[in-house]
Design a protein around this nucleic acid. Structure first.
Ligand code: FES
Ligand code: FES
Lengths: 158, 158
DNA sequence: AAAACTGTATCTATTATAATTACACTAACC
DNA sequence: GGTTAGTGTAATTATAATAGATACAGTTTT
């Protein structure tokens, strides 16, 4: 799948974390999600058109969420970005062989349904739930940090 | 999604139609599915490794199904081709920022589950069911063929 | 031995994706 | 009112993924 979706979600998570009151600039966001600021701007622009974020131009401008993180489902993001991850890509020749056309129609319909199922699943995930999960994961990972691993394993028993 | 999957399914449908007793050559298949014969051979080769088809080299060689079309689910094909349509593609830099890593892990897990759901859905579709559906569609399409459409719409009433 | 195939690697062309640059526009601040 | 720090967006370039094409070794049948 195209990476715009992951970048969008990642940015939204960052925005959800930002409780400073200041807007988050594309430059700062792009560093967090490791991509180019112009790309962030483009993606945030489409998120704004879908009313997921609020943007502001000019000095001290930038981005913030337009909804509560609990309301932003991944399905909303998915549709905003128009991923169509399950769209089958058929060849482009203009053949009119009815057998080929009918097979294509049947498979396109089947994957259209699959895409609906996917969106239903994404409906159940929100920016807030991802953020919480990531927090948990981060905590459990920190247990594995060098400073928490005794150089002498035996010391655990002591 | 990568087109190997659609080509694989399309080829399998063609093979299911072939009741002639002869094997289906890559050349003939490639014409049916509008792609290059070398590509068909490559795809059929991986289908053979997954025991979905039987291949035979040499003169009068070619391909045939190894299972009943009712047993060949799209999930089997999907796994054989290793589509991973929902795999998120993250940037490749070796950053060790724990926040980024945790977000990545959470999203990868979420989409791993989505992929499982997709496979469960594909488990319910078989080459046979697609073939039957395509037949039906083709019949209904044939009603729209030029020769079935009266040049004078009024003639319908007569 | 010749013919008709598959199996597979490699090269090339095409397309999709991402990074970069550029600049017009906007709003805040002094 | 001008400078500054930002977005919006288009255009260009670089890179990666995909597909097409070619080639040829290996395998069966005739
Ligand atoms: S190349 Fe796909 S329909 Fe012809
Ligand atoms: S570029 Fe993606 S983690 Fe750094």
């Amino acid at each position: 799948m195209n990476s715009e979706f992951t970048i969008a979600v990642h940015c939204l998570i960052e925005l959800a974390k930002n409780t400073s009151g200041h807007l988050y600039s594309s430059e700062a966001l792009s560093q967090k999600v490791h991509t180019h600021s112009a790309r962030v701007r483009k993606i945030m622009s489409t998120l704004r058109k879908n009313e997921l974020v609020v943007t502001k131009e000019g000095i001290r401008g930038g981005y913030r969420l337009n909804l509560d993180p609990r309301e932003i489902t991944l399905a909303l993001v998915y549709r905003a970005i128009a991923c169509e991850a399950l769209k089958l890509n058929w060849c482009s020749c203009s053949e009119s062989d009815p057998e080929l056309i009918s097979v294509r129609m049947v498979m396109d319909q089947a994957f259209g349904e699959a895409e609906v199922l996917l969106e239903e699943y994404l409906e159940r995930l929100t920016i807030d739930s991802l953020l919480r999960q990531a927090e948990k994961v981060r905590e459990s990972l920190s247990c594995l940090c060098p400073e928490n691993i005794p150089s002498d394993p035996q010391s655990i028993d002591k």
